[in-house]
Amino acid sequence: MTRRDMARYLARRLAQAALVLWAAFTLSFIVLYLLPGDPIEIMTGGGASGDAVDPAQIAALRHEYGFDRPLAVQYLDRLAAALHGDFGRSVTSGVPVLGLIRTGLPATLTLTGLAVALAVPAGAGLALLATYTRTPRLRRLLLSLPSLGVALPTFWVGLVLLQVVSFRLRLLPSAGDAGPAAQVLPAVTLAVPAAAALAQVLARGLDNVLRDPYVETAHAKGAGRLRVHLRHVAPNAVIPALTLLGLVIGELMTNAVVVETVFSRDGLGRITATAVGAEDIPVVQGVVVVSAVVIVLVNLLVDLAYPLLDPRIVLGGRAS
């Protein structure tokens, strides 16, 4: 692929990414601003059951948020503002949404990164070992771990870790943001389901590849089992796992909502949790769009990595 082709491909992919972001914005607009009968009523916690809110105050709010204008105008206004990074102000705190997200994002990204760094070697190691071993019992044991991992509720794993490691054994701090030691348990909690999912997909891929005829060719050359496993089997099994990794990173970022709540840490997750509870619509929309940006970037990186791992894949299509 020439440099020119590469540039053209990147340009096309960036245009696609923009389209996806637009779709994310539009979908969240539809869900958040159109689905509820009256956003203002929700945001003020009012309605029949809530405290009586001054009708004049509601009207003022409605005007401030632009809900008194036609839908199309509202949509275009919000889209134009969003393009400038303006998602409005938080209903509960009055702080600009983007500023709020910016305070939480670094901590959550660090946590997500740590979790990926734990999940990838753990998941890959588990899958490689499970498919390499010739002891059926060990294989069954190793393969049962991922199915357990995906079935455990994340919040509960976090609490059990806290209970055992922090309270019983007093090895690590229980909560808060103090120092790297406080990062360990949240990162582990977050990594468990991700590692499990990766291990499941990779193990399935490895088992499929093991049946491929070229593996027999490699054995027929007299290559050792470990060599065959690492040089012939594994490289052919990574593609589905890589695709999954792209999805998992987004999941991890969202799961931070749960994990940060469990460990009482500050971050985008906590901000989201609070905003959802308070039905703070502008903040939730901001979170959706920012998450979409991260997901789109990760997927772009994953797509760029495919041809490096499989020469049959050409950027922008598949060779015959």
């Binding site: 005829p213 070229y214 027999e216 060719t217 027929a220 050359k221 007299g222 490289p235 052919n236 049959r312």
Partner: peptide
């Protein structure tokens, strides 16, 4: 591979594609 070698059945799928 050194003393006994094998030519497999289906060449389309018997080489490591990557």
């Amino acid at each position: 591979g050194r003393d006994i070698a094998l030519v497999p059945q289906d060449p389309m799928v018997s080489l490591n594609p990557v």
